[in-house]
């Protein structure tokens, strides 16, 4: 196949942009695996720094994981029914509630964190527990779950599916779990992946809200960059990549699937 002359130009440009984005990532990974980054790769490769990170920051890694899962659980239990109700009653009120839900995305995380501290700071046990971080993460990620599910529910006429299930004798819960949820699955999966990804990577809110006992991975990253060797910070970044990359790949795959509208089903 003959390629048009501008093909090579486009390819070169694409590669240039990609390298602009990927080289820093690559450099960071290399730094995390190098014995001494200032000496360079000739100082040799090692996984020693990853070991150090594990020793120092393992709790932050696990904490990030269970906070992400807890955030997911709450957004599923709250967000999916909320999206269902919003989809069922379209109108002015629905639009307004939807906009309110999205507000936390637009407001700086620091401001939300401050508001939460002002409001709940007095409850000492709560303030110092990871539940406090959870509240922040739920506030921040809930709109992503709601919107994702709402988009799928709006893409097919689920009300008529419910009506036909009802005509066949199915009561509300049976319809909700047997018909509505399975057909909204792609939106729920995409929303879930978004929520987990955002929660694991969340820094703004968490940095402001955390105590030494409730430090998460991204806050730990900032801590290591500020006070540790460059190699340790980089190795820590590497751990973060390993956690987040599968999620991003899955998000890409299922996110694309859910935007493909169901035709005439």
């Amino acid at each position: 196949m003959r390629r048009p002359p501008y093909f090579w130009l486009q390819l070169a440009f694409t590669l240039l942009v990609c390298s602009f984005l990927l080289v820093p990532v690559f450099m960071s990974i290399v730094a995390g695996l190098t014995e001494n980054f200032f000496v360079g790769v000739k100082s040799g490769f090692t996984t020693r720094w990853i070991g150090v990170v594990w020793e120092l920051y393992a709790p932050t890694i696990f904490r990030s994981m269970y906070i992400a899962l807890a955030t997911l659980a709450v957004t599923l239990v709250v967000g999916v029914p909320a999206a269902y109700v919003l989809a069922k009653r379209p109108g002015m009120m629905t639009r307004m509630i939807e906009e309110f839900l999205v507000l936390p995305v637009a407001i700086p995380g620091l401001a939300i964190a401050l508001a939460l501290i002002i409001t709940y700071g007095g409850f000492r046990d709560f303030r110092t527990s990871w539940g406090f971080i959870l509240v922040g993460h739920v506030l921040y990620t809930l709109p992503f779950m709601v919107r994702s599910v709402l988009a799928v529910l709006s893409s097919f006429n689920f009300q008529v599916l419910e009506e036909s299930a009802a005509s066949l004798g199915a009561g509300f819960w049976r319809r909700f779990f047997g018909i509505v949820l399975p057909n909204a699955r792609s939106g729920i999966v995409a929303g879930a992946l978004t929520v987990v990804t955002l929660s694991i990577g969340e820094f703004n809110l968490t940095w402001m809200m955390h105590t030494p006992e409730t430090m998460t991975l991204p806050v730990g990253l900032a801590d290591s960059y500020a006070s540790m060797r460059l190699e340790i910070g980089s190795a820590y970044t590497l751990v973060f990549f390993i956690m987040i990359t599968p999620l991003l790949v899955a998000l890409q795959r299922y996110g694309v699937q859910s935007t493909r509208t169901r035709k005439g089903a």
């Binding site: 005509s167 018909i179 005439g264």
Partner: peptide
Amino acid sequence: VGMVFQSYALFPN
């Protein structure tokens, strides 16, 4: 009652 809809309303899942 049995209902048949214009859009068929079959369950895609």
